[in-house]
């Protein structure tokens, strides 16, 4: 009896967020949902967000999701990276829907109906930790951090709210995507794992033209480059006499240039750059 109430409660709570699945859920096996009072639930709120739930969610993720999305959620040969935001949902309820039901006509299938809604919510809690969504306290001062950002001319390469240069990643909502620890690593060890869209390339055309810039896209036969002055180039490789790819970051490491306090403050500032809450 209770289970029916819980499922129904979740169904109502999610409203339009969930397209289907409730009817099945009434008969689906329960995986140990306990007697939680769900009367407080409002639209799309995840009732299972404790550290324990994250740990359980992590285990289910490993078992059911990691083959495509990688054990750490950074993506694999089949599934996208889940550590830098989500393509298909921007709310807990939306994530719940994607995990529960899958995405039609893609390789993303819903989780087994043998899994109760509690398991799905626990996966959602874990996914939110992957993309920096589980908020934690940070020691630094964001106001001082904003000054550090300005003093070091970070806007010379980065954009925040449309201000700055777009030769590096847009930081407007970086706090949603990166945890404080990841931000610290980004600042002190920027070469660790540079995403391919930020690699650099220099090439020489058969007519002698030399172009150096961001490697926007590359295939077996051709390459597209954005040079420093913002011109877009597209070359057939057979027309190039020389071509070199640099997989390092163009950002310097700030482990030496900034004091520990300055780094803490800068991290606090960046971590506070989050998208406004929906509605």
């Amino acid at each position: 009896m209770f289970r029916k109430t819980l499922q129904l409660g979740v169904g109502i709570a999610l409203g339009f967020g969930l397209i289907c699945g409730q009817a099945d859920d009434l008969t689906a096996q329960d995986d140990g949902a306990i007697g939680t009072d769900v009367s407080h639930l409002n639209a799309g709120e995840n009732p299972y967000t404790t550290a324990y739930d994250v740990r359980i969610g992590s285990g289910i993720f490993e078992r059911s999701c990691s083959r495509c999305h990688g054990l750490d959620g950074t993506g694999g040969e089949r599934g996208p990276d889940l550590t830098s935001g989500f393509q298909r949902a921007s709310t807990d309820a939306g994530l719940f829907n994607v995990v529960r039901n899958g995405v039609p006509d893609t390789e993303m299938r819903g989780i087994s109906q043998n899994r109760g809604d509690q398991s799905v919510w626990q996966i959602v809690s874990y996914l939110q930790t992957l993309s920096g969504g589980m908020r934690v306290d940070v020691p630094g001062d964001p106001v001082t951090g904003a000054a550090v950002y300005a003093q070091n001319d970070c806007a010379g390469c980065h954009v925040i709210d449309g201000v700055g240069s777009s030769s590096g990643p847009d930081l407007t909502t970086i706090g949603n995507r990166r945890s404080p620890a990841e931000l610290a690593s980004d600042l002190t060890d920027p070469d660790e794992r540079v995403q391919p869209q930020w690699w650099m390339m220099n090439v020489t055309h058969n007519d002698g033209t030399r172009v150096e810039g961001r490697r926007l896209n590359e295939g077996t036969y051709s390459v597209r480059i954005l040079d420093e002055s913002g011109r877009m180039w597209s070359f057939e490789k057979r027309n190039l006499s020389q071509s070199e790819r640099l997989e390092n970051s163009t950002m310097p490491s700030y482990s030496e240039n900034l004091s520990d306090d300055q780094l803490q403050d800068l991290i606090a500032y960046l971590y506070g750059l989050i998208r406004p809450l929906d509605g």
Binding site: E62, R63, S64, S66, R67, G70, L71, D72, T74, G76, E77, S112, N114, R193, V194, Q195, P196, E218, E247
Partner: peptide, 16 residues
Amino acid sequence: GERYTGGGGTTPLPQD
């Protein structure tokens, strides 16, 4: 009927 894999993997560098 559930996955039974006992671990997994990550790619140290981008696949490209």
